[in-house]
Design a protein around this nucleic acid. Structure first.
Lengths: 179, 179
DNA sequence: CGACCCATGTAATACGTTACATGATTTC
DNA sequence: GAAATCATGTAACGTATTACATGGGTCG
């Protein structure tokens, strides 16, 4: 599965929940998938154009002049299932914090402690945000999506908690490292 | 910090441990940083050329004909510290597994269980590999690098264990989801 | 002497972000 | 009627991967 098809997948999947404009699509991807997926306008609009050309989505005039609401066609639904079933391509990892810590002797223990603390803070903020999203999702009427959304929220929570406990371990061991 | 500077950082940092050829550099990045960093030949060679032009590294003839061993210059050492101190730029996330699970109703519960199980298997394999690397690192004579390498190994372990426990939770909740 | 590893380098291609240009509609 | 938001689209730029081309050295 090429990387371009990944954007097709995200767009088709989002449109399968409900038809919307390119602008709303970007908004929806940002707020709902933001923790594990990103798309920019520069990707979304050309993707909508090519998906329309290939008959996977069809635009209808929106409420505002010049705006188009896109919805999945029957072949688009098939294409979505096909892309979903294809193996996921992972982005090559590039973790700047771990890179800096691996060569931590260059920065020194104090600067490394600061890096770890910042990572811990970010994870704590993620946990707070996830608690908010979890409460919101639990308060909505259950749908076919609910159990799946809960699973992705849980993934974020496990990951953030792991970062916090790693940070605590790391801070402890950095205390024994001479500057 | 631009994304190009990220490759500069990785290359300078690796050369700060010991001088080596471009080929060995790729090998070293793959084996030591592979869990959280990647660089391809197509990045490494042009980067070595530009770093040489800027006086941050200097090539010396290697053992084999035509090969060059690169080492940090004094200004290269300064540049390394400068880049290390700059804030890390994170790659935008693109987690294909979580994307598929978020829209899991398209695939159905059984296929989602398979995805989660595969993620669990990968995490278990990572844990085995990390145990090997940890034992290897603990058996080597301690150096200035040892405590920092241990911290990055610990990060991998926390992350992999989080994936395993998330997968177990997810599998349990998928059992209650109708197909 | 064939296979494999070490070693370098580039060209084609794809991927993706950012910034810019443009304008309609809503809200205060 | 000014500001904010909704909405579309593209051009420029930078980043990165992959595949290919090339050849020396080593080991069985």
């Amino acid at each position: 599965m090429s990387r371009a098809a990944q954007t097709d997948l995200a767009v088709l999947a989002a449109l399968s929940v409900s038809p919307m404009t390119g602008y709303a699509l970007r908004e929806a991807i940002l707020t709902h998938l933001g923790a594990f997926w990103t798309e920019s306008f520069g990707q979304i609009y050309p993707t909508l154009t090519s998906l329309t050309r290939d008959g996977y989505v069809s635009p209808q005039p929106g409420e505002r002049a010049g705006s188009s609401v896109y919805s999945l066609t029957a072949t688009g639904q098939e294409r979505l299932i096909e892309l979903m079933a294809a193996p996921a391509t992972e982005v090559p990892p590039r973790n700047g914090v771990l890179l800096r810590l691996f060569f931590g002797n260059v920065l020194g223990a104090t600067a490394c402690r600061r890096l770890v603390l910042q990572a811990r803070d970010r994870a704590m903020a993620q946990l707070a945000e996830l608690a908010r999203v979890r409460a919101e999702t639990e308060n909505e009427p259950p749908s076919v999506h609910t159990p799946y959304w809960m699973i992705t929220i849980s993934a974020g929570e496990h990951s953030a908690r792991a970062t916090v406990s790693w940070a605590d371990d790391a801070l402890k061991s950095l205390d024994h490292v001479p500057e």
